[in-house]
Design a protein around this nucleic acid. Structure first.
Lengths: 222, 222
DNA sequence: GTTTTTGCACTGACCAGTCAGTTCAAGTTA
DNA sequence: TAACTTGAACTGACTGGTCAGTGCAAAAAC
C-alpha cells in the first residue's frame, strides 16, 4: 500500500526484490512499513538506542508483528542493509552502463556515478547515514553482511577505474582500490554534509563541486 | 605519563589540554585511562551498547571512580569528543602553517593537511571511527558539541581554499564549503578503509593516491 | 587532613524476546 | 449468498535480564 501511493522518502519504500519469495502481499506490506520505520529511527539514534517498541509504534504495528516477520532485531537490521545497498549498486551500475552505451568516456562514467550516488543519498538520506555509521564498526553481529555489501558497491567503481587504466584513459600509476575508496568517501561525506549542514544547496551544486574535484580543476597543474 | 613513555595508540594518550584546570596529576591520569578505555569500546560497539562497567573494567578502575570524575556517561563522551577534535585541528593547522612558512603553495598546504589527517587517523583510528559514526546523527545529546567541533576542523581546510582562490592559485569557480567537505570526506573514508580493509598498505601509499586525486592526475583533462 | 579511589550492594527504569489468544481473508460447502 | 472452516497474520501483556546511576564506609594517595 505504502510503496505505491506516495513519493518514497526512505529506504522502506524500495521495491521489494523478493526478500522472501513466498511472502504474501499483506506480509510484504508489513515488512515495508517496518523497514521504513526502522531506517529513520536507527539513523537518528543508532542501532542499540532504538527499541523494538519504537519501531513497531512508528510502523503502526504491534511488537509481536515485528517478531513474526523477523527473527530478531539484528536480522531486521541486516535485511534492511542488504535491501538498501542492493538498490545503490544497481543504480551505480546502471549509470556506468548508460554512459558506456552512449559512447561516453570513463571520466564521464565516473561523473555519472557520482551523480547517481548523490541522487540515491538525496532520496534515502537516512539509509546512507546509517550505513556510514556502521560500516567501520568491528565486532558486530552484522559485520560479515556489511563486508559483502561494501565490496559490492566499491567493486562497481573499481571496475570503471580498471577499464580506464586498461584503455589508457587513466594514468597507470593510480592505485585502484585506494582511489575507489577515496571517491566513494568523497561522495558520501560531501552528500551527508550537504544534507546536514548546507541543505539549501541544490543537487547540481554539489555535483558540480565534486565533478570539478574529480577532474582536477581545483588544483590541477603539472 | 602514557603520552611520554610509549607510542600512544588511542586518543586517551593525547596531551591534556586542561579539561579541568584545577585537576591534580593523579586525577588527570585517571581521566586519561578512562578516555582511552571509552574510545576503543565505543568505536567498536557504539555509545549505547557500551556499558559504564565495561569502561571502568578496561580502564582498571572502579565504577565509582567514573562517576567521581565525570557527571555521567554522556558527559564523559562529550569531553572525549572535544579532546580528540582539538588535537586534530591543531595538527591540521600546524601542517598548513609549516607549509606556508617554508614558502610552499596552497596546493602544498592541502597536501600537507591530507598527510597530517592520515597521520592522525593512523595514530587514533578508534577516535576517527567514532567521530564519523556520530557526526551526522541528529537528536542526540551531544549534537551541539559535534557541530562546533566539526566546524572547527572544516574551517581550517576552508581557510586554505579561500586563500588559494584569493591569490588566484585556485579557480574562482570552486565552491569552498562543498569542496572542503569533500576533501575532508575523501581523507576520512579513504583512511578508515585503509585501516579496516587494506591494513597492509603504507601511509605513503594512501597519501600518494589521495595526492594524485587532489592534483587531478587521475582523470585530469581540459 | 584532604582529595581521590575502592568495592559493592541496591534501585528503578527499560527492553528484547515470548506466547496464548484474536482477527483477517480466502476459500469451501450448502 | 450466507454460514462455516482454516491457516496465516497479528496482538499486547508478561518475563527475565540488564544497566545507569546512587550511597557509603573504609582504604590509599598526596
Amino acid at each position: 500500500m505504502n510503496g505505491r501511493t506516495g513519493t518514497p522518502v526512505t529506504i522502506g519504500a524500495m521495491e521489494s526484490s523478493s526478500t522472501t519469495p513466498g511472502g504474501s502481499a499483506r506480509r510484504e506490506a508489513t515488512r515495508q512499513k517496518l523497514y521504513e520505520a526502522a531506517v529513520t529511527l536507527i539513523a537518528e539514534q543508532g542501532f542499540s538506542a532504538t527499541t523494538v517498541d519504537e519501531i513497531a509504534e512508528r510502523a503502526g504495528v504491534a511488537k509481536g508483528t515485528v517478531y513474526y516477520n523477523f527473527a530478531s532485531k539484528s536480522v531486521l537490521f541486516e535485511e534492511l542493509l542488504r535491501h538498501g545497498v542492493g538498490l545503490l549498486t544497481a543504480s551505480l551500475r546502471q549509470a556506468a552502463e548508460t554512459t558506456a552505451a552512449e559512447g561516453g568516456s570513463r571520466v564521464d562514467a565516473l561523473d555519472a556515478m557520482i551523480r547517481a550516488g548523490l541522487v540515491f543519498i538525496d532520496r534515502y538520506p537516512a539509509f546512507t547515514q546509517l550505513y556510514v555509521a556502521e560500516l567501520w564498526r568491528t565486532n558486530r553481529a552484522w559485520n560479515s553482511t556489511l563486508l559483502v555489501v561494501r565490496q559490492q558497491a566499491v567493486a562497481v567503481v573499481e571496475g570503471v577505474l580498471h577499464e580506464g587504466v586498461a584503455q589508457g584513459e587513466f594514468s597507470e600509476e593510480i592505485d585502484v582500490p585506494l582511489t575507489a575508496a577515496a571517491l566513494v568517501g568523497m561522495v558520501l561525506v560531501a552528500a551527508l554534509d550537504w544534507k546536514s549542514f548546507q541543505p539549501g544547496r541544490s543537487l547540481d551544486d554539489v555535483h558540480a563541486a565534486l565533478s570539478r574535484l574529480l577532474q582536477g580543476r581545483v588544483s590541477g597543474r603539472r
